[in-house]
Write a protein that binds this DNA or RNA. Structure first.
Length: 417
RNA sequence: GCGGGUGUAGCUCAGUAGGUUAGAGCGCCAGAUUGUGGCUCUGGAGGCCGCCGGUUCAAAUCCGGUCACUCGCCCCA
């Protein structure tokens, strides 16, 4: 067994993995751009405050899952555990709060010190979008629609179900929170250990407890939708009308909540049952309170993030460009001749492999392994006559083509395909 | 952080009433075929049996610890 391995919870993206990874990013980027969301990037580490302030002490992510360190200058820094805080920080840093709305797409690594599982790594990668400065339901709907289109294009939409819910505005949420705490406090002793802790820190999260006892207690608990004020109801109704118009099927899941204070109104997740316990493929919501927590004033926001590894596991990944031609020269002189021709072909978009040693049998074997469509062979006999052998690896058919015509000949064949 | 499962060749895995030089298939390399791949045949390389310690005359095998992977909880993408 290899003694030398990457740190726990990290993995290498070898070409096969990278192909899926890149495909997810490219697809998401293309579709995001069609909605007017342009790509940006933020640093992979920020001042610890950027995450600590909005995510708060009640969040496990910040309290025990971050990679935090002090740099040589004494600054408290943290590797980003998620993307939204950094994007909003960047928005504020650049003064873009003056020119709203702003629409961003991003992709990159995130870091959380967690126990690794399938689809859950310590360094993992996300794509995400953020729409800043649009408080209306059309913003929620646009972001969800964009997410759905990306999942469709990747071939994973029909493996997922869109769950949506509303947390209401601050007024509605606080009223409900109070009612829920009052109700559950009477049963405190019967709640699971985790939920007893949540009752003080983060009562809404009890709603999505998986503990059977908790679930039974929640049957008669107050319902969030009964505490929504008129504005909150209108917002959620409008979001649902938009989704209907876009013909995106969704189920209302009253237990879908977010623990963080800056989340309000719409929350949603695309969930699959194909990845075991890590079923959430894309998750997001409205976070109108976040910018204010970072000192950026009242800027509404809505967005989502999705795990690239999880998406890549579910997606249909198209094959890489095939090897169109492999050049085999029987000596350095002959190879040099083909070298020049190869450059011309590559400039025209063909994928051309180089034969690295003048041993025909070996090179043919390699051509077979890399699934080259054709090989060009140039040896003494051919060079003397100004031709090269062109062999199809598919059917073994072999012809001779004048060296001066070779590039044009291969390009013409390539275009026919 | 908590609980379960699994670590033997590059890959997938056999191999325990503890007992000589630890196996198979695939892959890799070479030859048959010295300038022509796939198919076939022949041969070859490649293992501190995850690591450390213990029990024993003797450990891949039993015991303890540890590391890694994996499934679930927590949390989350």
């Amino acid at each position: 067994m290899a003694k030398l391995q990457s740190p726990r919870g990290t993995s290498d993206l070898l070409p096969q993995d990278m192909a899926g990874h890149r495909h997810v990013i490219n697809t998401a980027k293309t579709i995001s751009l069609s909605f007017g969301f342009e790509e940006m990037a933020t640093p992979i580490f920020e001042f610890t405050e950027v995450f600590a302030r909005p995510l708060g002490e009640t969040s496990d992510v910040v309290s025990k899952e971050t990679y935090s360190f002090t740099d040589r200058g004494g600054e408290a820094l943290t590797l980003r555990p998620e993307g939204t805080a950094g994007v909003v920080r960047a928005l504020i840093s650049a003064g873009l709060t003056q020119t709203l709305p702003q629409k961003f797409f991003y992709a990159g690594p995130m870091f959380r010190y967690e126990r690794p599982q399938k689809g859950r790594m310590r360094q993992f990668h996300q794509i995400g979008v953020e729409l800043l400065g649009v408080p209306g339901a059309v913003g929620d709907a646009e972001v969800i629609t964009m997410g759905h289109m990306i999942l469709s294009r990747l071939g994973v939409a029909d493996k997922c179900i869109l769950n949506i819910n509303t947390l209401g505005d601050t007024e509605s949420r606080l009223a409900y929170r109070q009612a829920l705490v009052e109700y559950l406090s009477a049963f405190r002793g019967q709640l699971s250990e985790d939920s007893q802790r949540r009752l003080d820190l983060n009562p809404l999260r009890i709603l999505d407890s998986k503990d059977e006892g908790d679930i039974a207690l929640l049957v008669d608990a107050p319902r969030l939708d009964h505490y929504l004020n008129a504005d909150s109801k209108a917002h959620f109704d409008a979001v649902r009308r938009y989704l209907d118009a876009a013909e995106i099927p969704a189920i209302i899941n009253p237990r879908l909540v977010r623990g963080l204070d800056y989340y309000g109104h719409t929350t949603f997740e695309f969930i699959t049952d194909a990845l075991g316990a890590q079923g959430t493929v894309m998750a997001g919501g409205r976070y109108d309170g976040l910018a204010a927590m970072l000192g950026g004033g009242d800027v509404s926001g809505v967005g989502w993030a999705a795990g690239i590894e999880r998406l890549a596991m579910l997606a249909d990944v198209p094959p890489q460009q095939a090897v169109n031609v492999m050049m085999i020269g029987m000596s350095d002189d002959h190879m040099a001749r083909l070298f020049t021709l190869a450059v011309s072909l590559r400039q025209q978009g063909l994928r051309v492999e180089t034969g690295y040693a003048p041993h025909l049998g070996k090179q043919m074997k390699r051509a077979d392994r890399i699934e080259a469509q054709q090989v060009v062979i140039l040896g003494d006999d051919e060079a003397a006559r100004g031709v090269a052998i062109l062999r199809s690896m598919v059917d073994g058919a072999q012809t001779e083509v004048a060296l001066v015509d070779l590039v044009a000949h291969l390009l013409a064949q390539h275009k026919e395909q």
